[in-house]
Design a protein around this nucleic acid. Structure first.
Lengths: 200, 200
DNA sequence: TTTATAATGATAGTGACTTTCATTAAATAG
DNA sequence: CTATTTAATGAAAGTCACTATCATTATAAA
């Protein structure tokens, strides 16, 4: 009845489920790369992963969700919360982004890159990602509010969080599709603009 | 062969089409209000508008598009372009928002409000609206760039536009909004925060 | 081993959207 | 005003994402 995930004894059942889930995701992403997202049916994915279509939907509520699993947000939040208190919210966010992305290996970066291109090029995925950002903004607002001793629903807090995410998305949406190299540098530069009060 | 819409002589055909389109939209929005968006099928809308389902999709590519027709963006852009050159980009945007929404009649405001509630409460519609914002941001970036004599793809320009839209969306996404007036005031306040350099 | 529980697959939906094609109505040519 | 071209429509069948049901099988617990 514990609400924690048990790390020491995953159990045979859980191990199998994890393997099935991973297999579905792997085959799905491969098929998407090979044939395109729209041209790949759930039936094909199920076939490749050797499960029934019904089972696919037991593991992923929608076809989109196969792509949209993202483990980065929690990590970013934790890093943000660990930033020294004397930094301004924007400075703290800037450093967190830098820290988290800086820790990725070249391979991880490439994977993230490929996924980003896929998400940005498929309207349904792009939309889902944006919508998820709304949720992220509420969590970030809570953290920022705590840090500066305000309420999360104050306009100043909401505006700041919205502006930060907007500035970051602007970078991703603009030239993520062209070059992976400057990705991090551009995100940092965008946040630097915000920090400087958006001079123009 | 002219690419302009002919205002003086719409022609019988065009007039009929406009009427059909309006009828579809009217009945659809009524049914959405009465039964909810998901519970209303395209077949029902077609039935109410006395056309075939096939014809529905000839007028609107998707069920979502019936709701998402928006004539505001062009108006906002035009108003922005007409702002005096001595205003900063953010100031100019702030004034434009104020001007455009201030010109609406009470009836128009109520309609917009109803539509906004619908869009925000239905995930599919909310996502589509967010996605449309990506396009909007590129257009706005072009206008801002022209105004300040920079290139639209410069980071400073993209960051500014992203931040502005992010700050505005943050207001929309907050569920604390109770009336259209409230809504407007919050958008203005959010832009004011940006203008002040996001102090916190 | 027995029993409860959870995972699976098969089957048959629903509903948005597409495609095709024959029919009708409107615009245009003569 | 009639003939011809062109566009709008409806009917019908199909695709695909997704849901619901239920019998079957595999795992866990007693």
């Amino acid at each position: 009845m514990s609400s924690q995930a048990e790390r020491p004894a995953p159990g045979l059942r859980e191990r199998k489920k994890a393997k099935t889930r991973a297999a579905i995701q792997r085959h799905a992403l491969r098929l998407f790369r090979e044939q395109g997202y729209d041209a790949t049916t759930v039936e094909q994915i199920a076939g490749a992963a050797e499960i029934s279509p019904s089972t696919f939907f037991r593991y992923f509520p929608t076809k989109e969700d196969v792509v949209l699993y993202d483990a980065f947000d929690p990590l970013l939040f934790a890093t943000f919360a660990a930033q020294p208190a004397e930094l301004s919210p924007i400075q703290a966010i800037r450093r967190s982004v830098h820290t988290v992305f800086g820790k990725l290996t070249a391979e991880e970066l490439r994977e993230q890159w490929e996924r980003a291109v896929l998400v940005l090029s498929v309207p349904e995925l792009r939309m889902r990602m944006l919508d998820a950002t709304v949720t992220v903004s509420q969590q970030l607002a809570a953290l920022v509010a705590e840090r500066v001793g305000r309420r999360a629903d104050e306009i100043a807090v909401q505006a700041l969080v919205g502006a930060v995410l907007g500035a970051l998305i602007a970078v991703v949406a603009t030239d993520a599709v062209r070059s992976m190299e400057d990705y991090l540098a551009r995100m940092d530069a965008s946040l630097a603009c915000l920090e400087a009060g958006l001079p123009l």
